[in-house]
Write a protein that binds this DNA or RNA. Structure first.
Lengths: 187, 187
DNA sequence: CCGATGATGTCGCGTCGTGACATCACCATA
DNA sequence: TATGGTGATGTCACGACGCGACATCATCGG
């Protein structure tokens, strides 16, 4: 039999999530998380570069999957490509309720929100790169990646709080909302 | 004569900026900044809640000034109001070269970039609130604040790296770029 | 049976950030 | 002039974060 229990990373993420939800992020120490997971804090930091990152373990994979969708997307206008990649992704496989709880934990803490914004930015940068590889002009790629992610972000939050609405539908509505005012010029 | 030199906060920000530019953010400790400013680290943390914040001392004032511009803006479409407030602000008073250097320091460090994104988000939230007080629908306010800030952000970066171009002009161009593709629908 | 591998533990350390209390120039006021 | 308040700073102690270096030991291939 193994010297230690296996699945330390999984155990750490699960326990951290629970504790953050129970008593908040700042009030939970790494020592406490590690203790409950029956490892040392040193082991915690071997799996996660810092305390916040324990809530973003899947973000690399998610970003890669989304970028892949950009690459595979049929030829279309850049903004449509970005929104299509985001809206077409099967978010339900991540668990709607899990995403709701995760979102609540993050929104409740400025440090976590900050990290979340950073991850979104990473996605935007990766999108920009992918679009350019598809031949999109650099300036257009930067702009559409960032704007597209904001449009999707607004829609996503509405989807999370909504009962059972279709995400793609909400994204389309949100985009329509923008189109209506996007002809505006700076004063 | 005073027991201590006055202007500790100003001294700390200036020295911190210098050190971050010289040897990077992570490689500079608060002890070092405080030592050069001839105060204790305890004093540093009385002025700034954490090490990063020393580079964002003016952000509260900037946000307030921008929100005020939203409030005073003539009646127009929400996105135009947001872009007008941002593009019309007199950024040159902050010192073009100073902004360039600050931007470089921030871009060179993930922790600072993260904090910067958080500050931009604070502005977006404040804009959303201000727009709603002008009677704009909540969903539209959220969307236009966030999208407007991204459009401006792209333009601003171009303005910083540009020689002498007019910011308002770049913003208008960037917005035109978006309008051209904003009629796209999510696939 | 043995040596390599890999996950974990142990130890020590520097940095970050805070609470509590002490100090002391300055200022108002009696 | 004396007295007491105010505000900026210092001092001290402390817990939490995060990392480098090295030790341990089950497992696995040869």
């Amino acid at each position: 039999m193994p010297r230690w229990e296996s699945g330390s990373a999984e155990r750490l993420t699960r326990i951290a999530m629970e504790l953050f939800a129970e008593k908040g992020f700042e009030e939970t120490s790494v020592v406490e998380i590690a203790k409950r997971a029956r490892v040392t804090t040193r082991t915690f930091f071997r799996y996660f570069p810092d305390k916040r990152e324990v809530l973003f373990a899947e973000s690399d994979g998610l970003r890669a999957a989304l970028v892949e969708r950009i690459r595979q997307a049929p030829d279309d206008e850049p903004l449509a490509v970005v929104l299509g990649a985001l809206a077409g992704f099967d978010w339900d496989t991540l668990g709607r309720e899990a995403q709701r709880q995760r979102h609540a934990v993050i929104a409740a803490n400025p440090e976590l929100l900050e990290r979340d914004l950073s991850k979104q930015n990473d996605i935007a940068v990766a999108f920009t790169d992918a679009l350019q590889q598809r031949g999109v002009d650099a300036a257009v790629a930067r702009l559409t990646s960032r704007v597209g992610l904001q449009v999707f972000g607004v829609a996503y939050e509405r989807w999370l709080s909504a009962g059972d609405a279709d995400l793609a539908g909400i994204v389309a509505e949100t985009m329509a909302l923008l189109s209506r005012t996007a002809s505006a010029r700076a004063g």
